[in-house]
């Protein structure tokens, strides 16, 4: 691919999804967009590039943006955040929301659904403590294609073996031919919605817990800052933010600060958080 075309895609992706495409990732354009060119009836990727310089079909642009997303994920990815959800976040919310009995969770880049469904399973296992609670899990992503997969909630044998304990597979999945489908009781706990983090997210409402994991890594500093700023506005005063293992708010978004001693967990800076120092035992589960 020539430099002109590379820049064409680079700029398009930057403005549409925030993805920062570096030259070393140029090969991804060929492998991922050649099928899109075929789909739209172009003989080659080059031909599609030519047409993009005109007035491109917005559906085609959407296909391109979606094809360039990386959807890598797994159940209980990295383990630790979900331990913290159980040992720090849930106890806090059980106490602080005991009057309203409402808990609102948002997975801001949910990919094929493993992250929100992991949370649903954790909540299901704690159901006796949360009787009469209204729990909402909103899961969003920029890619409509991946959201369709998420709603289907059907996973390969390989996918259900990464991060998912066998007891949970037995309890929450049905075997359908070669794959495994999450049971309705877990599926119905999650509401999937299309949402581009670069666009208006205020329509989603406010949340007690936000998972925004492994998506900021694809953005440049300025975009990270803008997105984190917008997320902060959707968060309740004493809410929690989870980021991915390679992500941080430090030096990027002054709205947040890391929660002391709890890696990957962030709170709003001006929050009067009553749980700054969690019990020592909280960190030692799993």
């Amino acid at each position: 691919m020539n430099i002109g075309d590379f820049d064409l895609y680079k700029n398009m992706l930057k403005t549409k999804s925030g993805l920062t495409l570096t030259p070393d990732k140029a090969y991804l354009l060929d492998s991922r967009l050649t099928p899109i060119a075929k789909k739209w009836g172009f003989p080659s990727l080059d031909a599609m590039s030519v047409s993009l310089r005109g007035k491109p079909d917005s559906n085609m642009v959407r296909d391109i943006v979606e094809a360039m997303t990386t959807n890598e994920t797994s159940f209980f990815r990295d383990g630790k955040p979900f331990d913290l959800f159980k040992s720090v976040v849930l106890p806090h919310m059980l106490k602080e929301r005991s009057k309203t009995k409402s808990l609102k969770i948002w997975c801001a880049a949910c990919s094929s659904g493993q992250e929100p469904y992991s949370l649903s399973m954790v909540l299901k296992e704690n159901a006796p403590m949360m009787q009469g609670w209204n729990i909402q899990i909103t899961a969003t992503d920029i890619s409509n294609a991946i959201l369709e997969n998420a709603k289907r909630a059907e996973y390969s044998q390989f996918e259900v073996q990464r991060g998912l304990p066998i007891q949970m597979l037995m309890r929450f999945f049905d075997q359908v031919n070669e794959s495994w489908r999450l049971k309705e009781e877990i599926r119905k706990m999650v509401r999937f919605e299309h949402c581009n983090l670069l666009e208006d997210i205020s329509k989603l409402g406010r949340f007690d817990v936000v998972f925004c994991r492994n998506v900021l890594i694809y953005f440049d500093e300025a975009t990270k800052k803008t997105v984190l700023g917008k997320i902060a506005k959707q968060m309740e005063k004493d809410s929690f933010l989870f980021l991915g293992g390679a992500e941080t708010v430090l030096g990027i978004a002054e709205e947040f600060k890391p929660m002391e001693g709890q890696r990957g967990l962030y709170i709003l800076k001006d929050s009067a958080h009553s749980m700054q120092k969690p019990p020592a035992s909280a960190a030692a589960t799993r």
Binding site: D78, G79, Q161, G245
Partner: peptide
């Protein structure tokens, strides 16, 4: 898969965290 399963039953520490 082996690593994930061994971690789940406490045979090894999890990679991250």
């Amino acid at each position: 898969i082996v690593e994930s399963k061994f971690a789940q039953i406490g045979l090894i520490e999890t990679k991250t965290g």
